[in-house]
Design a protein around this nucleic acid. Sequence first.
DNA 1: CCTATTGCAGATAAAAACTATCCACGATAA
DNA 2: TTATCGTGGATAGTTTTTATCTGCAATAGG
Lengths: 172, 172
Amino acid sequence: MKLGEGVEAAIHCAATLASVEGNSTMPGAALAESFGLSPSYLLKHLNMLTAERILESVPGPAGGYRLARPAERITLLDIVLAIEGREPAFRCGEIRRNGPVKLDASAYVKLCGINAAMLKAERAYRAALAETRLSDIVADYQAEGDPRSIAASCAFVARHQRPQKSASTKQV
Amino acid sequence: MKLGEGVEAAIHCAATLASVEGNSTMPGAALAESFGLSPSYLLKHLNMLTAERILESVPGPAGGYRLARPAERITLLDIVLAIEGREPAFRCGEIRRNGPVKLDASAYVKLCGINAAMLKAERAYRAALAETRLSDIVADYQAEGDPRSIAASCAFVARHQRPQKSASTKQV
DNA sequence: CCTATTGCAGATAAAAACTATCCACGATAA
DNA sequence: TTATCGTGGATAGTTTTTATCTGCAATAGG
Ligand code: FES
Ligand code: FES
């Protein structure tokens, strides 16, 4: 059981984007630099977030990424599922049917108890992720993070965020 | 996030072994046949269970595997950790330190909030697995499984289990 | 219109993990 | 003594993950 390291990158990027003002954007290259990641590869992950309507992208110079909705309505589960896919970690191969004794398919209508138990555990996992919002992560960091780190983050965001002229003129 | 398919095999095998009587054993080849699995590869997984003291192995003819302790004291978490390893699924690479702004190590004494949230979710996952015992799986199967399937399983166990002469003469 | 910047899609490939097989060995029941 | 079984290591095929590169479309600014 392993999560790709793209998950860590995606959540950190989303948290960073939560700090940009209004409808401004931040280029993917800046996000990659912010965490010392490979720009080319990070774009793959940002793209998955865009495909799942967690981020929005703006092309052209002065373009980049921003959150598609307020950080209060983005959970860690949203991000993890966008990156890792929606399929459960435990995938039942129905090996109970593969034995030497061949039974009719009607003997397997009920879900295998092992499968059920594993899926139940996974529901607990997802529930825990679903109750943590991106805004909680950011608020916690602002409240308890190291002051030097916070200052550096704010400076980085201020330096790389780019205001958009068109669009909805979201309130700050 | 994905679990190896060995987990499904390992739990099914453990559940089968929970049905052998007393201190009898069942050969790995029989377990592999019981689920249509590759014998060579299944042995690798059974070995991991043995290494974690979940199974016991008996060499020689009439040898095989049996549970190392009663099914009431084996949880799904025990088996999953034995197969997948004890490390958490989310492994923080401390990418927060890799940005262009270099800060002293003292700025990172506090656990990253993202890491904390992911680990909390994983604790929920493990807790759910820990509260399901192997005996629960077996009892549920005996109570609600398809009668034909149960009969086939019992016949298979009866045909392949092998009584041991020495050892503790556990009560049935 | 022209150019520079940015996101996007696809091909490609290196690296790691997972799956699977085989064989030589030691243990042991019969 | 022999046949059966688990153990450990070596090996290899397959899949997944990670990473890079290229060409293309969109667009702000001049
Ligand atoms: S057959 Fe897949 S978990 Fe039982
Ligand atoms: S640095 Fe690893 S989760 Fe934040």
